[in-house]
């Protein structure tokens, strides 16, 4: 996304003047590579808003923090975030009429880790233009770097670059065309014993912090099964089998409801490939029940419906 900070600030100012409670966007974090969620409520807050190729966060789930508000809330939505909002609306967790989406066309976000490797001296800003990412360092503006090698993993399989039916801050852009990550196919092709040790190796690093659940726009139950003590669905131990059950259950709870925004991968502190679980379920649901993958607004969730002629592969 190119630097759309100025039009965003104008829009936020107009919204706040129009009695919006808050504008949810991004602000600069500790360095030029990263942004953090930001809640602008006044002129000072508006001045901190930014919108460039470092604004990774899917902000849609913060709308759950405003359930009883009379006033509207403005929120910056990229293409993928717009699907997340639709998910929350379909789950009746967010009242669409209370939300003012600010559409941010996005040609892909820059991966801070890859940028750091390329510019070890530090980065002050990352903008996105037609030729790739334009990085500014202490030494000044650098020539544009090709997008393909610097994109976030999830942006390589972009489903939607521009939010539909939304007032946009800039002209629509095309989705990056790197092609989807072949992670699912790669894991599926492993021999069963290797597949088991791959996943056990991954899950054994899990610290059960539940960040993947907390960030997921499809995981918005008022009370999550993993927080309940009665019934005790799953113990609090961090044994391997418990963690396996946690991750498979979590993936199953979003089966076919996942919008494939990739936030679970981004927030995981130990870097588990969680979207490889979600994508597997999306692909299988698409193949078995002939559905669009990922979930699209207006369609029924695959496990919330049935057809008389569903396949019976092993029954």
């Amino acid at each position: 996304m190119k630097d759309n900070t100025a039009p965003l600030r104008d829009k936020a100012r107009a919204l706040l003047a129009d009695k919006a409670a808050c504008v949810i966007g991004h602000a600069r974090d500790r360095d030029g590579l990263r942004a953090r969620p930001h809640f602008a409520k006044d002129e000072r807050g508006v001045g901190a808003l930014i919108l460039d190729a470092t604004c990774h966060h899917n902000l849609a789930k913060y709308l759950l923090d405003y359930p009883y508000l009379e006033a509207k809330v403005g929120i910056v939505l990229k293409g993928c975030d717009a699907l997340a909002l639709e998910r929350l609306v379909a789950d009746r967790r967010v009242d669409r009429a209370k939300v003012v989406p600010i559409g941010a066309p996005c040609a892909g976000m820059a991966d801070p880790v890859k940028l750091q490797a390329l510019f070890p001296g530090g980065v002050t800003a990352v903008a996105s233009g037609p030729d790739g990412f334009t990085v500014t360092t202490a030494a000044g503006r650098q020539p544009p770097a090709p997008r393909a090698g610097l994109l976030l993993e999830r942006c390589q399989a972009c489903h939607q670059a521009t939010p539909p039916d939304t007032e946009l801050l800039a002209e629509p852009v095309a989705a990056p065309t790197v092609g989807p990550a072949a992670e699912v196919a790669r894991i599926s092709a492993l021999p069963p014993a290797d597949r088991l040790s791959f996943w056990q190796g991954q899950f054994s690093r899990c610290i059960r912090c539940y960040a993947c659940r907390n960030v997921c726009p499809a995981c918005s139950c008022r009370e999550c099964v993993f927080d309940q003590f009665q019934p005790n669905w799953l113990g609090r131990r961090t044994g391997l089998a418990q963690t396996q059950v946690f991750h498979l259950t979590r993936a199953f709870h979003v089966a076919g409801r996942c919008v494939d925004c990739g936030e679970c991968d981004r927030v995981c502190p130990v870097g588990l490939p969680l979207s490889a679980l979600n994508r597997k379920l999306l692909q299988d649901a698409g193949e078995l029940f002939k559905l669009a993958e990922p979930w699209r607004p207006g369609t029924t969730e695959p496990l919330g419906t049935y057809k008389l002629d569903d396949p019976e592969e092993f029954m």
Partner: peptide, 25 residues
Amino acid sequence: YFTRRRYLLMQRLLEYAGVNPGRFE
């Protein structure tokens, strides 16, 4: 019918996670 959909997916997920699908029916 809901069971059928659910466990079609489940069987494949178990297999993908390395659990032998023969254990589940």
